[in-house]
């Protein structure tokens, strides 16, 4: 089950079968996958998509899982339709970003600065100037893979992963920036930390994750002693936390 993309500038597009109720749409790269995911959400919003339980974006694919198939062949028809879509290129600017405060004092700051060819004090400026977008989630509940850094600022993972990365650590690997919602092992380069990581994941909130796929994000540099004066990031009704020196 595969088809080539329509004439809408999407380039290579393949629709792959993933069991009786799921399709994987494979795009040429992450940028196209994000655009295709955004289009899926737009069409679902408009009621133009058959009932699908999960739409799961990833590095260069979007998984449609739990496709309700009331009539034989409905999944095949959806596959053919997806392959024919014309999708607008992604617009990175526009939309109010979620602002994530960061204290840029991570243990890998010097290494990242060296890889970028800048001084350690310039990492915060370069990183916080970037318009990020949550491409997808994975690894742990509420862990978002944020894209937006230009290719020259992509960095490799650490050769030896850490056995414990603290909650709120702001980290880089490959094209991605991520923020660990809770302590876990991790191999990404740590450049900073959120003063208030509790807001990343709150099962009592809708949505539970602060960084939902498609969300525009900006990192706002703050100094360690001044984190308490920050307004909370805008995300529904979440509460500011006073753990200023976490």
């Amino acid at each position: 089950m595969s088809g080539s993309g329509g004439p809408g500038g999407l380039g290579e597009l393949r629709v792959l079968s993933a069991g009786p109720h799921a399709l994987v749409v494979e795009l040429a790269d992450g940028e196209h996958a994000e655009a295709f995911h955004a289009e899926l959400l737009r069409r679902r919003e408009r009621g133009e998509l058959p009932a699908v339980r999960d739409i799961v974006p990833a590095a260069r694919t979007v998984l449609l899982d739990g496709i309700a198939d009331p009539t034989p062949g409905a999944r095949g028809r959806l596959a053919r339709e997806l392959a024919s879509w014309r999708v607008e290129p992604l617009r990175r600017e526009g939309g109010e970003p979620v602002e994530v405060p960061v204290i840029y004092d991570g243990p890998d700051l010097d290494e990242v600065a060296a890889l970028w060819g800048v001084g350690a004090d310039e990492v915060a400026a370069l990183h916080s100037r970037t318009a990020f977008r949550v491409a997808f989630c994975g690894f742990a509940p509420g862990f978002g893979y944020l894209t937006g850094l230009p290719e020259r600022l992509h960095v490799p993972r650490r050769t030896i992963p850490r056995t414990r990365v603290p909650a709120g650590a702001v980290a880089l690997a490959g094209p991605y920036t991520g923020v660990y919602p809770r302590p876990s092992p991790g191999g990404w380069q740590l450049v900073g930390r959120m003063p208030d990581p509790g807001i990343l994941w709150d099962p009592g909130r809708e949505p539970a994750a602060l960084l939902v796929p498609g969300t525009p994000v900006r990192f706002v540099p703050v100094e360690a002693g001044k984190a308490a004066a920050l307004p909370a990031p805008r995300a529904g009704d979440l509460q500011a936390d006073s753990r200023a020196d976490a």
Binding site: R53, D54, I55, V56, P57, L63, D65, G66, F136, C137, G138, F139, A140, P141, G142, F143, P207, A208, A209, V212, P213
Partner: peptide, 9 residues
Amino acid sequence: RPGHAHLGV
């Protein structure tokens, strides 16, 4: 808890 895979759940 189906339906939350896009959040990593």
